[in-house]
């Protein structure tokens, strides 16, 4: 397309100079790989994942040394831990969902665009060139990957420390059925998947907030605050009508995956809600970023 006018230009006819255009563009997966590498090689990411892994460890150790037996208080499933170590993962997830997971996801999602702008790398990525839509997609997918990594880390750490400190055996489900350890592991991963999906709405919000500013800390804080506000609103009975529309509404409803047969309805309505948030805030992020003057 662009070769014709080059040919009659007197000074730019050197073969070396015109070389780049003789190739076809690649699909752009290299940037995706690079994005994931930058995210997961970053020390900050490791620190956050490590902190998340510490929570099941703390839970397990606390239950182990207290040995006070069941007091009936505390997060769901905490009583079951001493009978079956696999429940450490569930307790840890329940503890992480309201604050720690939104916190880490807020950091990653809030950093997506604002972080690049702050480092001054955004302008260089854009003139490389990366199309703005491609950059948003790559950033969102990488943040999604972090959500998955974060929840899987909590579940894995929980299962491992539970197995180390407590006995592990067949799990009695909420429906009264009993499943084997292997099955239970699969259920745990399924719950990790549920929590990952739960966080996508927040991730999209973080991406959008990140396009609004060049200060990553601001975007991170705003994202975390939004997640807290959503949970507060969800706890106010006066706002009943609003509840099904809050992205945090189904966050703790993963217990339905612990029935036999699996009760998929909450998974489905959660996924649909999160998808809605991704669509709306993805569109807002696009609307903001596609026409934004990059002056950072």
């Amino acid at each position: 397309m662009s070769h014709s006018d080059e040919a009659d230009s007197p000074t730019a006819s050197g073969a070396r100079v015109t070389q780049p255009l003789t190739r076809r563009p690649t699909a752009g997966w290299a940037l995706m790989g690079s994005e994931l590498a930058v995210l997961f090689r970053r020390r900050r990411t490791w620190v956050m994942l490590l902190a998340l892994a510490l929570i099941p460890v703390l839970v397990a150790v606390a239950v182990r040394i207290s040995s006070a037996g069941s007091s009936g208080r505390g997060p769901a499933f905490i009583d079951q831990i001493s009978q079956n170590g696999l429940f450490v993962a569930l307790v840890a997830l329940t503890i992480c969902i309201p604050l720690f997971l939104p916190l880490t996801v807020g950091v990653v999602a809030g950093d997506t665009i604002a972080g690049e702008a702050n480092l001054g790398t955004l302008r260089y990525l854009l003139v490389s060139p990366v199309g703005r839509v491609r950059l948003l997609v790559v950033k969102f997918v990488a943040a999604m990957a972090f959500c998955l990594a974060a929840t899987v880390v909590v579940v894995l750490a929980g299962v491992l420390i539970g197995a180390a400190l407590f006995q592990v055996g067949p799990v009695t489900l909420l429906s009264g059925d009993t499943i084997g350890v292997g099955q239970a592991g699969l259920r745990a991963l399924l719950i990790a998947g549920y929590v990952t999906v739960s966080l996508l709405g927040l991730t999209a919000i973080g991406l959008f907030v990140s396009t609004l500013t060049d200060i990553p800390v601001g975007a991170m804080a705003a994202t975390v605050v939004i997640s807290i506000v959503s949970q507060v609103l969800d706890s106010l009975p006066q706002l009943d009508a609003l509840h099904p529309w809050l992205f945090s509404h189904y966050w703790l409803d993963f217990a339905d995956l612990l029935r036999q047969p699996i009760e998929w309805s909450s998974f489905g309505s959660n996924a649909l809600l999160q998808l809605g948030y991704v669509a709306v805030f993805g569109a807002l992020a696009y609307g903001r970023f596609a026409s934004k003057d990059v002056l950072s």
Partner: peptide, 13 residues
């Protein structure tokens, strides 16, 4: 540099 180069779809990996 590798990072910025990978952003260019015309640059050969």
């Amino acid at each position: 540099l590798r990072r910025l180069d990978s952003a260019d779809r015309f640059a050969q990996s």
